[in-house]
Design a protein around this nucleic acid. Structure first.
Lengths: 164, 164
DNA sequence: CCGAATTACTTTAGGTTTAAAATGATTGAA
DNA sequence: TTCAATCATTTTAAACCTAAAGTAATTCGG
């Protein structure tokens, strides 16, 4: 196998500049969108983004979820969820009860109020997000979906998994 | 202009599901990568991500930056920067001095220690990021760069600009 | 059955983050 | 000049977030 000088050089000191720029761009897009969503949630509904995110998880699980489930789905620490849930119970948006079969487990679900408020917010939120991507063609959206799926798989391989 | 039923329907209740899924995927990728970078920075260098990010900004500006500059670049609030800078001055990584021409302005820059430590971390960081995207082809990377640039422009249009 | 390991959740300490108000310095228009 | 507006930064209050340690319940191998 013959290697030209460029390939040879890359063996020990590859150029990683493109990947770094890609990461920064990805981060910028997310931060930009997240900040705007946060601002609008506060302005329109006086709600924080983490509260909205947690309610979104519960809306997809009418039968309820455990705190651990929420923690994994939201990719945040257990302790973080404990505090968020505490405040959402306090404000009457979610309902928490200890599982009858396993007393370690807390099942939480949206209350009627919580569900109603979430649905109202979610409807607007979906329009905001559609606007965010308004200048992308349908093909752009599909391409981006595909590339991000690939990125997610690639990134996951660099994350050490818990032993099974 | 003739509209078929699908187009007609879309006038008032367009389907925004794809965009929403795209946003969630974007967010997942960023959260995943960010979490892993945070974990490694702590594990390898006992440093937090915000501290690293701030030092990265300063490394690109050898002549120094104002706190407002940093705030804009990092897309975080002013008050946040004040606290971060406070701790980085405390630990000897950055140097802060009041501008001679405008006493409202604080110029900050990396100290010798700060620069040395940052460079060491940045070298490893770059490799971690390259690994994150390792399964993407060179074309994938370029496509993703282009689509994210487009996304950024599109998203910016939905963010209300401050009056000039 | 029994004790070690695991699991679910909470607590703690410290740092991060925001929005909004406050402080002090500069600018600019009348 | 002068004072209202603007600007850079800090402060404040509350929430968010993590890592790590702690508590209590369950599971499982022997």
């Amino acid at each position: 196998m013959i290697l030209d000088s460029e390939t040879k050089a890359s063996e020990h000191s590859e150029d990683h500049g493109d990947e770094l720029r890609l990461w920064l761009r990805l981060l910028t897009c997310t931060t930009l969108i997240e900040g705007e969503v946060r601002r609008r949630l506060r302005e329109r509904f006086d709600v924080t983004l983490p509260r909205f995110d947690l309610m979104a998880q519960l809306d997809k699980a009418p039968e309820g979820m455990t705190l651990s489930d929420v923690s994994k789905r939201m990719m945040v620490s257990n302790g973080n969820v404990t505090g968020l849930v505490e405040r959402l119970v306090e404000s009457g948006h979610i309902d928490r009860r200890t599982s009858e079969t396993d007393r370690r487990v807390q099942m939480i679900r949206l209350t009627k109020l919580g569900r109603a408020e979430f649905r109202k917010m979610a409807a607007e939120h979906e329009i905001w997000i559609a606007n965010v991507f308004a200048e992308l063609s349908e093909k752009d959206v599909q391409d981006l979906m595909r590339l991000l799926a690939k990125t997610k798989l690639s990134a996951r391989k660099t994350v050490p998994q818990k032993a099974v």
